[in-house]
Computed example of a mutant assay.
Amino acid sequence: MERIKLAIEKAKSQGPGSAPVAPIKAWPTVPSVAHVANDEHIEVQYTQTDVVQLDAAHLERHRVVAFNKHHPANWAFDLLRTQVLRKMDENGWRTLAITSPSMESGKSVVAINLAVSIAHQSQRTAMLVDFDLRRPQVANYLGLKRDTSLNDVLSGAADVSQALVNPGLPRLVVLPTARPVPKSSEVLSSRKVGHIIGDLRDRYADRIVIFDLPPILAADDVIAVLPRIDCVLMIVGSGMSTQKAIEEAMRHLGGANLLGVVLNKDETPVRKGYY
């Protein structure tokens, strides 16, 4: 545990655009989402996007807690949201990659909860894209069963708008990946994915797009797509990564805009039993 903390501190001092550690565990011309903004909040009307209601017990089992504002762990993701948005606003960034050094760090859970927390803000909209093409988990954690997904968009069988889903929370849409994608690194570095990222970023000025990426050390997928995304957040699972792995992952980030490092799965007792 102590080695991980020391490695994180070293990574912070070396990484460009570093921020403090957060203490927590192409589509058609007719838009599928209509934004109506005023001085107080943004209203979203889903004209073509499917709206589904999620199962609360399923979310709880997979530690997706941010949907429930009364959950004792929710405050931690709200705190992370405030830190992330402040840094992104300062730099005019609207796309955020979330990754980890290795597997089992909880990056997908953090990505989901952060997207939900952002969507709770009345002046923001959020999109969550599952770009972990080797081991997609977002749909599974949310309990989404979709006939159309990012797989169909990449194959040319569907438009982005047909694959989007609203999980019953205003101002949030999800672009899930239903199954692993062959040659994922080549796909993520393709011109088509570049166009998708650009369109998702530029369509709405109030939108924050979060991309759940694979672990950095699992393959070269993150290196392939990261230059197209504004900034990155590193998730380190307590006890899941060695100091050497963390330092190697930081070197792979190169000149990326690192927002900070999240220490996840920390068992240190904190208020309200948050993990």
Rank of each mutant, 00 (worst) to 15 (best):
S100N: 07
L226N: 05
A224T: 07
A34R: 15
L59V: 08
G156Y: 07
S238G: 08
R61P: 01
I118R: 03
T148H: 04
L150H: 01
K5L: 15
S155F: 06
N264T: 01
H71K: 03
V225H: 04
M127L: 11
V116F: 00
I235D: 05
L164D: 01
T125D: 10
A249Q: 05
L80E: 00
D206L: 08
H195I: 12
I208E: 03
P176V: 04
V187D: 01
H58L: 10
R228L: 14
N74T: 14
A245Q: 15
A157W: 05
K107Y: 06
L175D: 06
P72W: 08
A19F: 12
L128N: 00
L169F: 10
L213P: 02
V222I: 14
V52H: 02
V174I: 14
S155W: 02
S18A: 15
S155Q: 14
R94P: 02
T99Y: 05
V129T: 04
E60R: 13
M1K: 11
S100G: 11
D89S: 15
R228W: 03
L114E: 00
A111H: 04
N140I: 09
D199C: 10
H58A: 10
V181R: 05
R228S: 12
L144P: 03
H58M: 07
S108N: 04
T95C: 10
N91V: 12
I223Y: 07
V187G: 01
A26Q: 15
R207L: 11
A34Y: 13
A73V: 09
D159L: 10
T29K: 15
P170K: 10
V64N: 02
Q83H: 13
G15W: 09
